[in-house]
Write a protein that binds this DNA or RNA. Structure first.
Lengths: 145, 145
DNA sequence: CAATAAGGTTGCAAATCACAACTTAATTCC
DNA sequence: GGAATTAAGTTGTGATTTGCAACCTTATTG
């Protein structure tokens, strides 16, 4: 990927993509959100090659999205857990999930994201203005900070 | 990318990723949201190789995220425009943008997404339950539909 | 004390990507 | 009205990244 150096790109979208915008990274993050923590479990649940998994886990740890924790006292078993930064990707993954629910499955998704307490589906995400009004693409602009 | 065949994966996240989860595809979609429509303009604004751009544009058209429109009557000039499906990715890109604003730029993003009418920044996206209460990752579950 | 499991690393073949050059058709320039 | 330029690609070639399988090392288990 010889794209414009993301570490100097002023667009946060590009910077975000550079950190997590990769098939396996996102699948690992999804899996972590489902509760997976161990190398072997990621490997089996995702069917990913071990070297690729190793590489992605290291990168995600580098970027402070996962934390590598010693599990079992002897330094031979580890857990990879989401950091706050990683956990915050929940909104992003939810947005993509909802998009695909709507457009790929045409509103008949086989799996549904629900509120654990009430078992009712979560609301569709919306971009809101400062007064809480939903905004469409053509109603927004990019301003310099 | 030898990942589990996304066309049969019941997880909409995986299906969504298979459609747009690629650096260049997302940058093209971002660019399209900024108003870019022509092959040459995408090429120059993104600094992407022409064959890769050609490939990604074709795939995005295939997937009904962009529409290829004849501009100028003679079939030699074209425009690539977002479809409704493509435009709906606005929420996804906004979620990622906000995440990077917060975590990569540490709340000092150089560029800001604002409401065009009031020039005030848009609200941070939140996953809400059916009653409008914000939900955290650990409060949700996946249910079969 | 041999076998298995966890968590990797290494080597190699296959797929993907980037860059540059070429193509074709229309338009503008002189 | 011929020459140069622009739009929108396609093709070829080499570099990079990926995937798969095999190997390694340090516990634990039987």
């Amino acid at each position: 990927m010889h794209r414009p150096d993301p570490t100097t790109d002023p667009c946060s979208l590009a910077r975000g993509l550079a950190e997590v915008g990769d098939w396996w990274s996102l699948m690992i993050i999804r899996e972590a959100m489902y509760g997976t923590r161990r190398f072997s479990d990621f490997q089996q649940n995702l069917g990913i090659a071990r070297n690729i998994l190793s590489d992605r886990l290291n990168k995600l740890v580098e970027r402070d999205i996962l934390r590598k924790v010693d599990a079992g006292e002897h330094g031979t078993r580890f857990e990879y857990r989401l950091t706050d930064k990683g956990r915050d990707l929940f909104v992003v993954l939810t947005a993509l999930r909802q998009w695909a629910d709507k457009w790929v499955f045409e509103n008949e998704p086989p799996l549904l994201l629900v509120d654990r307490a009430s078992a009712r589906p979560v609301q569709p995400l919306q971009v809101l203005d400062a007064d809480g009004q939903a905004l469409k693409l053509h109603q927004v602009a990019i301003a310099t900070n």
